[in-house]
C-alpha cells in the first residue's frame, strides 16, 4: 500500500518523465510545489499545457516554434546564404555562441541504422526542400564528431551533391586550454590531419 494519496502518487510519477529525475527527486519536487510554490506550480502547469499544444517543429528548419515558420528562419537580418545542420536544438544555442548568424536545420538526432533511424526519420527530405527554397552558398555540417554524426554528415554530402552547394564540416581539434599529453589519440590524429600552416 502506498503512503501517498492517489493524486499525489500520480504527480510524483508524472514528474519522473523529466530527464535526470528519479523517484526521490520527483517526490521532493512534488512536496515543494504543494507546500511552498502553489502559484509557481499553477503557472508551470499552464505553461506546460500551452507549450505542449502549441509548439511544433518549424516547417523549414525543424526547430521548435509556435509559428509555422519560426522567427529564426524569417529574420531578415540573418544570413540566408549559409545553412548550419545540427543534431539538436541545444546545438543551435551552442552555435550561436560562436557568433554564427546564418540559418539552421535541426535533425533531432542522427542516422542510427541499428536503432532503425534512417534518412526519413531525421527529416532529410525536408532538408532537401529547404535547400531548394533558400539555395544557400554553403552548408555547415555541425553534427557530433561520433561515428553516427559522421555518417549523417557524409550522407548529407551525398544528398546535396545535385545542388552543387559546398559543404563544410566543423574542424576536430585539441580543446583550448587543454594539454596535448592528455588529449586522446584519435582527437589528436584528427587535429594533426587538419593542421594549418601558420607562416
Amino acid at each position: 500500500m502506498s503512503l501517498f494519496s492517489p493524486l499525489l502518487e500520480q504527480l510524483v510519477h508524472a514528474l519522473r518523465c523529466l530527464p535526470g529525475v528519479g523517484p526521490k527527486s520527483a517526490q521532493r519536487m512534488a512536496f515543494h510545489l504543494l507546500a511552498r510554490e502553489r502559484d509557481g506550480g499553477r503557472y508551470l502547469a499552464n505553461m506546460l499545457q500551452q507549450a505542449m499544444e502549441l509548439i511544433h517543429r518549424c516547417k523549414q528548419c525543424q526547430g521548435f516554434s509556435e509559428k509555422k515558420i519560426c522567427d529564426l528562419c524569417t529574420n531578415p537580418r540573418r544570413d540566408h546564404a549559409i545553412l548550419c545542420v545540427v543534431e539538436s536544438p541545444a546545438d543551435v544555442m551552442a552555435m550561436e555562441q560562436t557568433g554564427y548568424r546564418g540559418l539552421y536545420f535541426v535533425l533531432h538526432g542522427h542516422l542510427s541504422p541499428i536503432d532503425g533511424i534512417g534518412p526519413s526519420e531525421i527529416g532529410l527530405e525536408k532538408l532537401k526542400k529547404f535547400l531548394q527554397e533558400i539555395s544557400p552558398k554553403e552548408i555547415v555540417l555541425a553534427t557530433n564528431p561520433t561515428v553516427e554524426g559522421d555518417a549523417t554528415a557524409q550522407y548529407i554530402v551525398q544528398l546535396t551533391k545535385p545542388f552543387q552547394i559546398p559543404c563544410s564540416r566543423l574542424a576536430h581539434g585539441v580543446p583550448i586550454g587543454g594539454e596535448i599529453e592528455f588529449v586522446d589519440g584519435n582527437t589528436l590524429a584528427h587535429a594533426f590531419a587538419g593542421r594549418e600552416i601558420v607562416s
Binding site: P113, I114, V147, A151, Q154, D184, N186, A189
Partner: peptide
C-alpha cells in the same frame, strides 16, 4: 582507452563499417 588511434572512415567505407556493426 583507444589502443591504436588514427582510424577514420568516410563515405561508403563508413557506412560499410557500420553495416558490420548492425
Amino acid at each position: 582507452e583507444v589502443s591504436s588511434p588514427g582510424c577514420y572512415f568516410s563515405g561508403t567505407k563508413l557506412l560499410s563499417a557500420l553495416y558490420l556493426n548492425e
